[in-house]
């Protein structure tokens, strides 16, 4: 029963939030630039939830999340441009398809690398991220319209408030149900102690692969929404630094907390984009000096994330 009341509250809150946002958008109270940032924050939240399932719940450290985000973005950009999709409704199957493409890539790459632990998994996912980056930089050699290192231009601009909001709510509900299902229990078992999880009969390889694939599907959907929001893609948008962005969001929001991830995404995007408006360019360079320092301080004082209490 608790679950139903919780999800009812969640639905009420999200619908009212949607109405507020819609009003703000419809009456032009906030400028189109800020509207775009709002949508971007939701997309980042969607993608970061994917990483949270991989890292926060299952404990598989991935430094290549932006690669799957990029795969989704390029797949969607290519499809919507080739098929000349303009409406929201025909775009939804494309979105789902892009999520599946990312998920399949995640599945295929996960089979070999998820056997690795902690730091070796980190370096392997980082390697995959670099491979994808190299591929995207050379993509014009395979298909001219992908643009290669010049960037992908002319993507139809489809993403709107309804779409990102619907997908976020949808993903939050599905993720929440997954986490509270037996699979979610297995994932958390693997995070706490992989050896013990194996010894009670959990197929850890299978479960890790499942969490990884699910996270990659979310990244693919996020990437597809991103591509059709900004209508321009460049390989440098999907490099290691972007993966670290998502990692920082998951850490700030607390590993293994969906709502925390959403808050952290909004704070993060607001911080990065908001400072761009407020501060002059010279001071802006200091952002990336301060962020790593905060990250180090956070790791020393709260190694389990800002919004989760210390366990054990």
């Amino acid at each position: 029963m608790r679950f139903f009341s919780e999800s009812r509250i969640f639905l009420v809150v999200s619908v009212s939030l949607y109405l507020v946002m819609k009003a703000l958008f419809a009456f032009d109270i906030i400028s189109p630039y800020i509207q775009q940032i709002c949508l971007y924050a939701v997309i980042v939240a969607l993608t970061a939830i994917g990483l949270n399932v991989i890292y926060g719940y299952t404990g598989q450290f991935s430094l290549g999340h932006a690669a799957f985000y990029g795969i989704g973005a390029y797949a969607s950009a290519y499809l919507t441009k080739i098929l000349a999709i303009e409406g929201v409704l025909p775009f939804i199957p494309v979105l789902v398809f892009c999520g599946v493409v990312s998920g399949i890539m995640g599945y295929l790459i996960g089979i070999p690398i998820l056997r690795l632990r902690d730091d070796f998994l980190a370096i392997a996912t980082l390697g995959f991220g670099t491979l994808v980056r190299v591929f995207l930089d050379n993509s014009d050699k395979f298909a001219e319209s992908l643009g290669g290192s010049r960037g992908f231009v002319g993507i139809p601009r489809i993403t709107n408030l309804e779409l990102v909001f619907f997908f976020l709510v949808f993903v939050v509900i599905i993720t929440r149900n997954l986490i509270h299902s037996r699979y979610g229990l297995f994932w958390r078992c693997i995070k706490d102690d992989e050896l013990a999880a194996t010894s009670v009969g959990i197929n850890t390889t299978h479960m890790k692969l499942m969490a990884f694939t699910y996270g990659c599907i979310l990244a693919g959907i996020g990437g597809a929404l991103y591509a059709n929001l900004y209508s321009f893609l460049h390989p440098s948008n999907f490099d290691i630094l972007r993966s670290i962005d998502f990692l920082i969001i998951v850490i700030i929001g607390g590993m293994g907390s969906i709502m925390g991830t959403i808050y952290a995404s909004i704070i993060w995007v607001g911080f990065i984009e908001g400072l761009r408006i407020v501060l002059p360019a010279q001071v802006l360079d200091l952002r990336w000096v301060v962020i790593p320092l905060l990250l180090i301080a956070l790791m020393i004082w709260r190694p389990y994330g800002l919004m989760t209490k210390r366990r054990r």
Binding site: F61, A122, L247, I251, P292, L295, I296, M299, I300
Partner: peptide, 9 residues
């Protein structure tokens, strides 16, 4: 590991 990434950045 995250601290190491942070120091590098």
């Amino acid at each position: 590991l995250i601290t190491a990434v942070g120091v590098s950045l």
